[in-house]
Write a protein that binds this DNA or RNA. Sequence first.
DNA 1: CTGTTAGCGCCTTCAT
DNA 2: ATGAAGGCGCTAACAG
Lengths: 333, 333
Amino acid sequence: MDKQTITIYDVAREAAVSMATVSRVVNGNPNVKPATRKKVLEVIDRLDYRPNAVARGLASKKTTTVGVIIPDVTNIYFSSLARGIDDVATMYKYNIILANSDQNGQKEVQVLNTLLAKQVDGIIFMGNQITDELRAELKRSRTPVVLSGSVDPTGELGSVNIDYVAAVMESITDLINNGNKRIAFVSGSMDEPINGEYRLKGYKMALEKAGIKFDKELIFETDYSYRAGETLWPAIASSHATAAFVGDDELAVGVLNGARDAGLRVPEDFEIITSNDSKLTEIVRPKLSSITQPLYDLGAVSMRLLTKLMDKEEVSEKTILLPYGLIKRSSTK
Amino acid sequence: MDKQTITIYDVAREAAVSMATVSRVVNGNPNVKPATRKKVLEVIDRLDYRPNAVARGLASKKTTTVGVIIPDVTNIYFSSLARGIDDVATMYKYNIILANSDQNGQKEVQVLNTLLAKQVDGIIFMGNQITDELRAELKRSRTPVVLSGSVDPTGELGSVNIDYVAAVMESITDLINNGNKRIAFVSGSMDEPINGEYRLKGYKMALEKAGIKFDKELIFETDYSYRAGETLWPAIASSHATAAFVGDDELAVGVLNGARDAGLRVPEDFEIITSNDSKLTEIVRPKLSSITQPLYDLGAVSMRLLTKLMDKEEVSEKTILLPYGLIKRSSTK
DNA sequence: CTGTTAGCGCCTTCAT
DNA sequence: ATGAAGGCGCTAACAG
């Protein structure tokens, strides 16, 4: 009936010591005579005792679990980050409660609240938009938070990502150097700072430097999905763009397939450069040129930063930028 | 400093009732006079009180969280299941602790133990092999378990999947009808029952029915990864197979690209049929023909089954088979 | 080095 | 309908 009935008290009795002592050996407290430690360990083993993490959490006010809010695990970009997060979490003895939010402000707030109710020691948030309500809740709870692969224009939250402005500027410049004058900018909602502020800025800077006039007809806003890219193709085609920068790999693959299924040759007739360098870029044909960013590391570093925050260590910089690169595969000339 | 200091006790004092009453309204216990309920609710709102789930878990012995052991979130097949699991979990007010195992027996046992230490109310396990040790641990803990998308030959664990034998048999038959006599069977480790028993059985049955002799040279065992498929291609080529059944989509894409990069035309020169009908099958060119299985639903149903088990409801059948299908896309004639 | 004693915040009988 | 009291299993001072 009961999950497990052996408590620290049983061990104490069997080993003829106090529960405090048992607690000490369980927690690796050095103040225990080797002999009694051995004895206790033996009893623990014999009784197959396992500390109840919930009770421990209540008493110590630390649950060794962190909440991870993710738009959709099914998206390879986010799941890659998640994997890095989990690995580092495990390394530091934490577990993660994963919750999908679909980038929906409502759900995010709700999920955050249940996470806080569960007394998570910290939170990692993925999502490109932070509603005011969410930000408010986040601040009210005095729980450490770090954004993973998401920017916070205000800089008040910990975050780790790459220099989107520079990365996009570089990739656009590349496209320009290949002779393209009309370059489509395809992304998710421009309301998301990462698109509307950072990436767009990089795009504009590159154009400006090359003396090309900005044309808002070349800006395409849609979802982060394969289907969205495919569907978008006709519109891109009629904009007379000869190349596209795309903000998400799945989306990029959609554009790629849209173009090819329409009879265009990539990169001869149309060039594409994408943003996340996920597995997908190598899986499709032609392989997609991409901004490279260390997805796994982004997650891993986020979690590492969070551990510091949770330990109340001093961190010199709450906003960490990881190196990015540009890899030319076969979707660009 | 403290995460949250308002306790049920504060609310009780402010509302001039006992904490028992507050507990009652919080838990929706009907034995509370509407008037006092209203008063309490008001104070709760004013003080912005939120029940501490850890304390609640300790007292009630239920944490409303379930553990999910997954080989790798980054694999689209598993993440699709995970998404279904999380959605249903949310629906039933549960949260999931997600832990990656890499299908490594050691890690699985370890992860299982920390999950149990955290007093999860139930466990969903994904992974194609259950080591004896793991099975033993699973049984010892009296925690409900259901396998999601994984078979348990012994049938003692709850599980939800599709009829792999029939599905594979059907797809192989299809390949045979297209004129193929030498069909490669590409899968993960044959030690995994899903491959070595179920799928292989379907494969053999189809051959037998068509009067084709089984040739073990056509059996290829490898990892579930894109790279593995690509790497495997030369071997497949030299086996003179004219078609392949593949047990995993990423792997199948690897084989596909391996074949195409080697100059073959698919499906004219080589046919491929894969197993999971994940997003990938539609993303690549040619699109992959596949056994179809409701990935999201597999996860969702698993979680639903788990809720029943956790509630100690009677379940007529612990092994649930969901319908599968076969979709002919462009990698088969 | 080891034991005692309070809680941690909430649920749950048992009375009233 | 409501209150009082005893845990749930463990940590954390505080004494010795």
